[in-house]
Simulated assay, not measured.
Amino acid sequence: MTAAFDPAAVRGRRLIDAAARASFPGRFPTDWLAGAGLRGRSGELAAAINRPARLYLERPGKMLRPLITHLLLEAFGKDPRAYREVLGAIELIEAATVSFDDIIDGSDLRRGGPATHVQYGVNRAYLAYQAAYNWAYRAFLSPALGLEQWRRDHILRTLAGEIFAYGYGQALELYWTARRREPSPEQYLAMSWDRIRFLSFNGPFRIGALLGGAGRRQLPLFERAGSWLGMAYHLHGDELNLFPRSGEWGKPLADDITCGRYTYLYLSAIARSAPGRRALLRRALGDRKISGAALKNVIDIVRASGAVEENRRMIGVFYRRAAAAVERLKLPAKYRTELLKIARYMAHDRPK
């Protein structure tokens, strides 16, 4: 029987942990401060930007994104140690993006501790997000990578495009939430495709392929694998928010509901419930003062509606598309097998 994927024990995890911790400085280098006209401001900037930007790096997650890139580098015959800064930058971008995500969603907890905006305030959290995301670009500009210009340009262009698409998706979700404009489940999926762009894992797949030496014609297949897998991961996370499988789930139970966030799971429950229950589900959305008993009743309604089964059906659709793309990648068979193990974990098996 094939061993289950464990992100904490996977090959390369120690390298990636160290790379992530080093991806954003505790204080900006003196020469960088001088070049930016900020000589003597190191202490101020550390308090305003460096410490907030490093919060989630010091409270690490599963590191799935750099793990995927690490695996692809190996599959192409590259030594991942030569790409330490890139692996760190990928995790830095993810940490920065979820920090901003927490502001937009009104999430107070992340990875078992206070969210960045709770610990440092919204203004500093937002500045740190911007600084970290832009600092990460330095890794892809390094001459040491020896990249052909088109490969470097493709990485930078797609990173810029995806953060724009992410902002568009966030704005659309904010509009729905603030105006109580209830999207259909299908509209929600279309929005998610934009909102989770980098978080959808197409970035780590693409970067690994470009650094590894994949040709232009191969790239869309890597991107599709990451995109479909990201959608499955996202929907699985929405289910875990209501039905966590681990006592270490790092966020409050059902805060998607109490913070007023639409999900495919919840929208499917609304669509499938009888009128009375449908009204109750709509009233509960965004109710931060809802009692524990009332919240449990709402979760029970979601479960009884058949929405969990529908959510899992959709996860299966995305997972199968991702797996089909992985099977077609021109990589040694053992690496395709490892990617499929990661995919299974992300779509179905992860407990938190």
Rank of each mutant, 00 (worst) to 15 (best):
K334D: 13
R321D: 06
R312A: 02
Y319K: 02
R312G: 01
A333N: 06
A293R: 15
I301C: 08
K296L: 09
R303K: 15
V302T: 04
R303Q: 13
I299G: 07
F318N: 01
A304G: 11
V317H: 08
A307K: 01
L329P: 10
A333L: 13
L295G: 04
K296I: 01
A325P: 02
I290Y: 00
I299A: 11
R321Y: 01
V302W: 03
K330Y: 07
V317K: 05
K334G: 06
K334L: 11
R321P: 03
E309T: 11
K330M: 10
A304Q: 14
K334R: 15
S291D: 02
G292D: 06
D300W: 06
R328E: 14
E309W: 07
S291V: 06
V317G: 00
A322M: 09
A294G: 05
G316T: 02
K296C: 04
R328S: 14
A333Y: 06
E310M: 10
A304N: 14
S291Q: 07
E310R: 12
I290V: 09
K334Y: 06
E327S: 14
R312H: 07
A325S: 15
P332V: 14
R303D: 11
A333W: 06
M314D: 03
R303C: 09
G316R: 02
A322D: 08
R321C: 08
V308D: 05
R328I: 07
G306E: 04
G316V: 03
V317Y: 11
A294E: 15
I299P: 03
A323C: 10
E309S: 13
N311I: 01
V308S: 08
A307E: 04
A323P: 00
L329H: 07
V302K: 03
L329I: 11
A304T: 10
N311D: 10
E310C: 05
F318S: 02
A304I: 02
E327V: 09
S291T: 13
L329K: 04
A293G: 07
I315E: 00
R320P: 01
I315W: 00
R328Q: 14
V308L: 15
I301T: 13
P332M: 12
I315T: 02
I299Y: 09
A333K: 13
R303V: 04
K296S: 13
L295S: 07
I301D: 03
L329A: 06
A294F: 02
E310I: 05
N311G: 01
R313N: 10
A324D: 13
R321A: 12
R303S: 12
L295Q: 10
E327Y: 06
V308Q: 06
A324F: 02
I315G: 00
S305L: 05
M314P: 00
R328K: 15
V317Q: 01
P332W: 09
A294Q: 13
I299R: 12
A323Y: 03
R312T: 02
V298A: 06
R328T: 12
G292R: 10
P332D: 10
F318E: 00
G306I: 04
R320S: 10
I315H: 00
R321W: 01
I301F: 08
A323N: 07
L331D: 00
A324H: 12
R321H: 11
G316A: 09
I290W: 01
A324S: 13
K334S: 13
A322H: 03
A324M: 08
A322S: 13
A322V: 05
I315D: 00
Y319R: 03
V317M: 02
I315A: 00
A322W: 04
L295C: 09
D300C: 09
I299M: 14
M314H: 09
A307G: 03
